[in-house]
Design a protein around this nucleic acid. Structure first.
Length: 814
RNA sequence: GGGCGAGUGGCGGAAUUUGGCAGACGCACAGGACUUAAAAUCCUGAGACUUGCAAAAGUCGUGAGGGUUCAAGUCCCUCUUCGCCCACCA
């Protein structure tokens, strides 16, 4: 038999699968389903090793569950809108649509050479009008429900991408895509009211507790950032205006030393005539604005300015306290103002120290450390707190809150860090927003029958232009659907995260022209049984999708509360420790590997090299080992038919059968429960190694062939091409995918004889073979007969003899 | 500063669920067989140190230190280093 020729075998089976439509899911709703989904890629032009890892993982699940008899849905599509296409267009003068299409064609071809089992019938591309029509449809539905709204706000602005960004898309003050520093701008924009679902998004985390990675859940929890507290009105002197502050520590209210407000606080305009040092304050406002948008906005140095001529009145005891403008108070969180209690909050403490503001303690510190040296942020008994003295913090939280509410001075509230989702973008390559601005009627949504609004093709993209759609007169000018007068279309496009917030339901009914999808189909396939992707989407895509699904549920078009039952986040593939990216030019392209070693080898290697949740630093060094293993499997086909003239002993036979059943169990469990593909593969390697030895020493081909077939079946999700080929060589006419996944016999899992270690005084002194049915006494008798241990125990007194069943014998001697 | 996770041979990693032979499997390495030779393949070796011609024996060993236990990579305490995420959220 010749050396394994991966090129022709892989080509053969890829064609065979396509011709026989092996990967198409059945429209058979009484069969148990399995929906396996990988995060859809952006068609950047080339597959990199991160993609290979991601899609191979998905393929293992898809093929495994198919063999387990499930009706598997394993679709693929393209997150095709977005800025890189536009940038490429500006740079190379290729229309974004064309550039995107070329890239999709190329990447699809690459995916096929990897042998991933996608049902290409359900392919979606978010830049197709047949897809984005439904973005527009959702937008209008949400507008009708009040979930889409327009407001003027201080929004994040990326000067390099020339567009606004959602909160989630600003990472450490930089743009999530281009990594440039972002700015703030006061602009009127489209928002989605994701905050309406903040509580439910948080609650839902409990439901996902064991099925999503902890890290993702804690990131989401942190991002949603719920905190319960009290909103309190502080009256101001010299005016009848009130200032709302938010606190989670009402128990410290007697310790308020000052009130701090954000320099961007709106009340400043209303009270400016009362401020005697307005010039100074105004200067500070301008400066802090500059600082916050400048580089390194996360400076820890707290600065502020005391407002003169006006003070705040603590409602609990009518004490007057000074008001400070302070840059450490966020304008975007709650009311943008706080009551500062330096004795019990480290930020207020730092500020008070810096500006020499006097303060005193109101919670007794158990550790007796002085508040002059550090603030005490723990709980304790109230002191210096008038009628509340002697009460415990936890009780005081409730009592003070009730007191404030009873006297109409404020109310209990809940605050979230989560902000409404800003979804308009001043870019071209995205879904046009289906709204019309009419002088008479205001904002008017398009009628459903007029959807989609097609994104016009002939737009001159010269860069630097904000909202390129403005330049198209044909696009902009329209008649108002309500009153008929000349009106203008909205020229912004939607954030591309809208596209990916619901694509997983579209796959269930990918080409429906009449509705976003047929609920019967969606209710069969959803939720996704296994979702796979990178952790970088923990707080963007994965929150948006959960939100969108809940909206669809409330629209009555889907059931359930959560879209993704199980989530697996694979680690990044890096090169010399840094992420692969086009701009760094350190992308390792899979094509070369596939050509040299074959897709099976590459798939096997990328799973074997490291646990999938961990980062994998790329090195092609171990690849040969995987290729060797594939060759060993290939060669076995001939070897098992060559009979040796030595009969196998009963023990050897029992051993190989035991190992085979153990391996089936191990591989099944590793795929199904543990997501540990590296150990699944190594256990198959052990079985193969043993099979080589067994076959060498035995004339029994029946067992060899049975074990070999099992190996091929177990390997087939990992290395499908070679396994199909061998399967066919055994005379099978149907794809190996139609063969049931091997099962194991519990009775054969256990060995009859095992080798166990013997410890004396905690040190390993030797090993002995025992029968699993031996009792402690039997073992004791056997052991004393062994010369070595007898010598070891000479002149010594056995204090303790322990036999831990089938694990260890341990002696304590003196 | 807060949260999550991790530290095991020359390297990737296994064993942590339920305390019980640390280093599975693979890479790289060394020796051997086959070959005119090479590649490929097959066999053998290998944590470190000490003693020994050798067979072998002993000591140490999972980031550091301490504890519980007959027994700790695994459990408890203290510390440390690294990675990721969030970061003045009152």
């Amino acid at each position: 038999m010749s050396e394994y020729d991966h090129y022709s075998v892989e080509k053969k089976w890829q064609n065979n699968w396509e011709e026989n439509k092996i990967f198409e899911s059945e429209e058979c709703y009484d069969k148990e389903k399995y929906y396996c989904l990988v995060m859809l890629p952006y068609p950047s032009g080339n597959l990199h090793m991160g993609h290979v890892r991601n899609y191979t993982i998905g393929d293992i699940f898809a093929r495994f569950y198919k063999m387990k008899g499930r009706n598997v849905l394993h679709p693929m599509g393209w997150d095709a809108f977005g800025l890189p296409a536009e940038n490429a267009a500006i740079k190379n003068r290729i229309p974004p649509a064309e550039w995107t299409k070329q890239n999709i064609t190329r990447m699809k071809k690459q995916l096929k050479t990897l042998g991933i089992s996608y049902d290409w019938n359900r392919e979606v591309s978010t830049c197709d009008s047949g897809y984005y029509k439904w973005n527009q449809w959702f937008f209008i539905k949400m507008w009708e429900k009040g979930l889409v709204f327009r407001k003027t706000a201080n929004v994040n602005w990326c000067p390099s991408c020339n567009t606004v960004l959602a909160n989630e898309q600003v990472l450490n003050g930089t743009c999530w895509r281009c990594k440039n520093l972002t700015d703030h701008k006061e602009l009127e924009q489209w928002f989605i009211k994701i905050t309406d679902y903040a509580d439910e998004l948080l609650e839902g985390i409990k439901q996902l507790a064991t099925k999503w990675p902890k890290q993702v859940l804690s990131m989401q929890k942190n991002w949603i950032g719920k905190s319960s507290g009290l909103e309190i009105d502080f009256k101001l002197t010299c005016t009848n205006k009130k200032l709302k502050i938010f606190t989670t520590r009402p128990d410290t209210i007697f310790g308020v030393a000052f009130v701090a407000i954000s320099p961007e606080h709106k009340i400043l305009d209303e009270i400016k005539f009362k401020i005697t040092n307005y010039d100074e304050a105004f200067k500070y406002i301008i400066e802090s604005k500059k600082k916050s948008s400048a580089k390194g906005s996360r400076n820890k140095e707290k600065t502020g300015v005391k407002i003169k001529g006006i003070s705040a009145i603590n409602p609990i005891n009518a004490q007057q306290v000074p008001i400070f403008l302070a840059d450490y108070v966020l304008s975007s969180y709650s009311s943008g103002a706080i009551m500062a209690v330096p004795a019990h909050d480290h930020r207020d403490w730092e500020f008070a120290k810096r500006y020499s503001i006097p303060f005193f303690e109101v919670i007794k510190n158990k550790n007796c450390s002085s508040i002059d040296r550090e603030p005490y942020e723990g709980k304790g008994v109230l002191i210096n707190s008038g009628q509340f003295n002697g009460i415990n913090s936890n009780e005081a939280l409730i009592i003070v809150s009730n007191w404030i509410e009873k006297h109409n001075l404020g109310k209990k509230t809940v605050n979230f860090k989560l902000k409404d989702w800003l979804i308009s973008r001043q870019r071209y390559w995205g879904t046009p927003i289906p709204m019309i601005h009419c002088k008479n009627c205001g904002i008017v949504p398009l009628q459903e029958k007029n959807l989609p609004i097609i994104l016009p093709k002939n737009i001159g993209l010269l860069g630097e232009v904000k909202s390129p759609l403005r330049t198209s007169k044909i696009f902009i000018n329209v008649q108002c659907p309500k009153c008929g007068i000349d009106a203008k279309r909205d020229t912004d496009t939607m954030d591309t995260f809208v596209d990916s917030s619901w694509y997983y339901v579209r796959y269930c009914d990918a080409h429906n022209c009449n509705a976003v999808f047929d609920s019967v189909k969606v209710n069969y396939w959803m939720p996704v049984d296994q979702y796979i992707g990178g952790i970088e989407h923990a707080c963007m895509h994965l929150i948006y999708s959960r939100f969108w699904y809940k909206v669809m549920r409330d629209m009555g078009i889907v059931k359930n509360d959560e879209p993704f039952s199980n989530l697996l986040t694979q680690g990044m593939v890096t090169l010399n420790g840094s992420a692969m990216s086009k701009s760094k030019g350190n992308i390792v392209c899979p094509d070369e590997m596939i050509q040299k070693y074959g897709a099976d080898t590459l798939r096997l290697f990328i799973l074997f090299a490291a646990p999938i949740q961990k980062q994998l630093d790329w090195s092609s060094e171990g690849v040969v080992g995987c290729r060797r293993f594939i060759n060993r499997i290939w060669r076995l086909f001939n070897i098992i038919h060559v009979k040796s003239n030595v009969p196998a002993s009963e023990k050897t036979k029992a051993d190989i059968l035991q190992l085979m059943h153990y391996t089936i169990k191990k591989v099944t469990n590793d795929i199904e429960k543990e997501f540990q593909f590296n150990t699944a593969i190594s256990s198959i390697m052990e079985l193969v190694n043993f099979l080589y030895i067994y076959n060498h020493h035995s004339n029994d081909d029946g067992i060899s062939i049975m074990v070999y077939k099992t190996v091929v079946l177990l390997m087939s999700p990992f290395t499908p091409h070679i396994c199909e080929e061998i399967w066919e060589m055994f005379g099978n006419k149907k794809s190996i995918l139609s063969c049931p996944w091997p099962s194991y016999d519990r009775n054969l899992l256990k060995k009859k004889f095992i080798e166990i270690p013997i410890q004396i005084n905690g040190k390993l002194k030797g090993k002995t073979i025992i029968s699993v049915s031996d009792s402690e006494n039997e073992i004791k008798k056997k052991l004393i007969k062994v010369k070595k241990f007898a010598e070891e125990l000479e002149n010594k007194q056995i204090i303790k003899f322990m036999y831990i069943k089938n694990k260890i014998v341990t002696l304590v001697v003196k």
